[in-house]
């Protein structure tokens, strides 16, 4: 057997998980390659956490397979777990322990040899910026620091794969930014699979996004592709020349006749001089044609801009009902 360098870090095939008659995951297949930072999105109850728990070896799937670095997480669970660092949802920690005590315990449980333990703990402390709190009880730490302790315990054994279940939930905006930059830093050396509800976070942190809905994969692409692939909306304001008149109907007819435009809607709230329209299109960007049309109709183009499709909109469209 050759160990190809292209071997995926995560390989999931037809994964299925049911709790009694409820199907949490309905046949999930995906692979994550080395060095990717993958955002795992989906509404609550879509099966994100369940998938992550199966990957980490905590839960048994009903059927299908999951492999970490080619190691089956069910048949060789212990071996597979050694390569994973996991930050569970809500980041449960032993509150009565000191940060240092806790990291020592984790290092022991992670079977780090005694000679290297001190060094690797120091490294994790340094990387997560825990220096000022190593001697404190975990129970008295702020949420931001608790999250860093969660990160430190996940990376202390230097795993190749980090699985982070909502790493920024419940943090304040400053802490969120700190944690995100930590994820980016860690993502340079490790493969990261993180779930989140903050779509802008996935957009800015991840190189790839998986969206699951109702236990099935509904999208798998780069953030850029996900926000560009299907058409968009252009905002246009047209005004008549001096002394002339312009009705909404005229503009609407002209714009609707452009190839590729799917719908035109007047914006009634527009207060200034002129007529404002929203132009929807499905494939090619029609801005050049809109400009030509307006010039040849002898009107004045006051404003034209493309409304960016946000990941939110893609997410809403893919995970509706």
């Amino acid at each position: 057997m050759t160990k190809a360098t292209s071997m995926p870090i995560i390989q999931v095939r037809d994964l299925l998980k049911s709790y009694g008659s409820v199907h949490a995951i309905k046949g999930l297949t995906f692979a994550v390659g080395k060095g990717q930072v993958v955002g795992f999105l989906g509404p609550n109850g879509a099966g994100k956490s369940t998938t992550m728990k199966i990957l980490t070896g905590y839960l048994q799937p009903t059927s299908g397979t999951a492999q970490i670095l080619g190691i089956d997480v069910m048949r060789h669970s212990i071996e597979a777990r050694k390569h994973i660092g996991y930050l569970p949802e809500n980041n449960p920690l032993y509150e009565e322990m000191m940060v240092m005590e806790y990291l020592e315990f984790v290092a022991q449980m992670r079977q780090i040899p005694k000679s290297k333990r001190r060094m690797m703990i120091e490294k994790a402390i340094h990387e997560c910026g825990l220096g000022p709190v190593v001697g404190k009880d975990i129970g008295v730490l702020s949420k931001g620091y608790c999250q860093r302790v969660g990160f430190a315990q996940a990376i202390v054994h230097e795993p190749q794969l980090l699985i982070l279940d909502e790493p920024t939930s419940g943090l304040d905006p400053n802490q969120i930014i700190e944690i995100r930059s930590l994820i980016k830093k860690l993502g340079k050396e490790k493969t990261v699979l993180m779930s989140t509800h903050i779509l802008s976070e996935a957009q800015s942190t991840c190189s790839r996004i998986l969206i699951i809905h109702d236990g099935k994969l509904v999208a798998d692409d780069t953030p850029l592709q996900l926000t560009q692939q299907e058409g968009g909306i252009i905002y246009v304001v047209v005004a008549p020349k001096q002394g002339e008149k312009l009705s909404k109907k005229q503009v609407l007819e002209q714009l609707a006749s452009i190839f590729g435009v799917t719908k035109v809607e007047p914006i009634n709230e527009y207060q200034d001089h002129g007529v404002a329209m929203m132009v929807g299109y499905d494939k090619e960007d029609p801005r050049a044609d809109i400009f030509q049309k307006i010039v040849s109709a002898n009107w004045i183009l006051l404003e034209m801009r493309r409304k960016e499709i946000t990941l939110e909109e893609t997410f809403r469209r893919l995970t509706k009902e």
Partner: peptide
């Protein structure tokens, strides 16, 4: 109750 059982059972131990 506190959820730490999940971390405990995720360590590479039987």
């Amino acid at each position: 109750k506190s959820g730490t059982i999940e971390s405990l059972l995720n360590f590479p131990v039987r």
